[in-house]
Simulated scan of single mutants.
Amino acid sequence: MRASCLLLLAGVGAWAWAASGGMMVSSPMSCLPVGDEHRAAVASEVVCAVLCDRLRARAYSFADGACEVRGAGLSSQVGPAARRFTRFAPPAWAVRREVSRGKAGNSSTPYSEGGAYQSAIDEDVTFSHFVSHPSTSLPWWMLDLGEQRLVLSVAALPMNYGADAVHDIEIRVGAELPEGENFTEWALLGEYRQRYDPSEGRLVFSSDAGICGRYVAIRKVVVSADLLRLIDVEVYVAEP
């Protein structure tokens, strides 16, 4: 590994790299953000790093004139602290842990206060559950993990009510909150395109490589009279 190099750009300030090459990050992180990616043809790695800083992004890579910037708008660092880049080195993941309990979240309009988003992460798998309001054509449920995590799987336990059945849902993972209620730019973890049968138990959606993100959403993608009902949702992430 070559020694760190320090460059001074007129009107920009000091920039530092420690062994450039691969994905470079401005601060330690457990996984690389997904979404808000920008690609451009630039003259040098310096220009790519400047673009990363200007977009308040958290990571970039440069090779053969091609610059890729990830996590635009996610960096909280400004000034010189945001201009020191090191090569991304993922941790050695050792364990898989469930992290949904006690987390903040949100949802489309619930049927009642008793059926709000918290009802799907309260460990009561008998009575308490999230249920969407009939006025919402494409209901959704969302969990905020509090920080970027490498999401490995989501295990959702839907609930049918009479002829009302959960069907046609997607599970997506995102780095930042969406515009309005449009989750389509988030990475797709999995989908379920049939009518749920309780004999199936939990529906498990997994990614071997994992998806880096802070938010997890479950949403209906087909308009119907059936409500979105979730008894319980578990989210598993990788930890060193």
Rank of each mutant, 00 (worst) to 15 (best):
S108I: 07
R97Q: 11
W141I: 10
G162F: 06
S108L: 03
N106E: 08
L143I: 14
S137V: 09
G174K: 09
E170T: 11
T126C: 11
K103L: 14
P178Q: 09
P178I: 08
T126D: 12
P158G: 09
A155N: 11
G115L: 09
V166F: 03
L138A: 04
P139I: 03
F127G: 02
T126K: 15
E181C: 09
H133I: 02
I169L: 13
A175K: 03
A163N: 07
A175G: 15
E123F: 08
A120R: 05
M142E: 13
A155E: 14
W140N: 00
T126V: 15
T109Y: 07
A156C: 14
L177A: 08
E123M: 13
S100C: 14
G105A: 11
G180S: 12
I171P: 04
G114V: 01
T136D: 11
E176N: 07
Q118V: 10
G174H: 11
P139T: 01
S112E: 00
S119F: 02
S135P: 00
R172Y: 05
H167K: 11
V131A: 14
P178D: 05
F127M: 09
A104I: 02
Y111S: 02
A163D: 06
M159V: 13
L152N: 01
H129A: 12
L150Q: 05
E176L: 08
L177Q: 11
D168L: 08
R97W: 00
I121G: 04
L152Q: 10
A120S: 15
E113V: 01
E170F: 11
Y161L: 09
N106H: 10
L150F: 02
S112D: 04
D144Y: 09
Y117Q: 08
N160D: 10
E170G: 00
N160P: 10
G174F: 05
T126Y: 13
S153C: 08
E98C: 03
S112M: 01
V99A: 09
L143H: 02
L177N: 03
S107A: 15
S128F: 01
P139M: 05
E176A: 12
R149L: 05
Y161E: 07
S132C: 06
G174R: 11
E123Q: 13
A104Q: 15
G174Q: 10
R97C: 01
I169A: 04
I169Q: 04
V99C: 10
W141Q: 03
R149V: 06
R101Y: 14
F127E: 12
W141G: 01
S128K: 10
S132L: 06
R172E: 01
F130N: 02
V166K: 06
H133Y: 08
K103G: 06
V173Y: 07
E179G: 10
D164V: 02
E123L: 14
S119R: 15
V166D: 01
L150C: 05
V151N: 03
D124Q: 09
P158D: 10
A116S: 13
A156I: 15
L138C: 07
L177C: 03
D164I: 02
D124E: 04
R97E: 07
A175F: 02
G114Y: 00
V166S: 03
N182K: 14
A175Q: 03
A163V: 05
S119T: 05
V166T: 12
E123R: 15
W140K: 01
W141F: 08
A156S: 14
V125E: 15
P134C: 05
R172D: 02
E113S: 09
P139N: 06
W141L: 06
S112P: 00
